[in-house]
């Protein structure tokens, strides 16, 4: 298991989702990815993408300027 961060600041949806998807493709099951975005739409889209693709959202935080979404990569 390893921890990674993805800077998706200033990208508008769906680009944060695309970058997350592409990053996750390089990771293995159990790896942790923290995605940082400025588009609040990511708070809906990244968890939706995780649900349909079998990854787990461990936490989301929103400090108004930025949102952070932490994901645990699933098995499939």
């Amino acid at each position: 298991m390893s921890k990674h961060e993805l800077d998706a600041r200033r990208l508008m949806c769906p680009l944060p989702v695309i970058r997350t998807q592409d990053k996750v493709a390089t990771l293995g099951p159990g790896d942790i990815l923290e995605v940082v975005c400025t588009d609040h739409g990511a708070l809906n889209d990244i968890p939706a993408w995780c649900r349909i693709n079998g990854h787990k959202v461990l936490s989301t935080t929103d400090d108004k300027r930025e949102v952070r979404i932490t994901i645990e990569v699933g098995h499939d």
Partner: peptide
């Protein structure tokens, strides 16, 4: 604010 493609999927 949903992404419709993700929602449909």
């Amino acid at each position: 604010k949903r992404n419709n493609a993700l929602w449909v999927a």
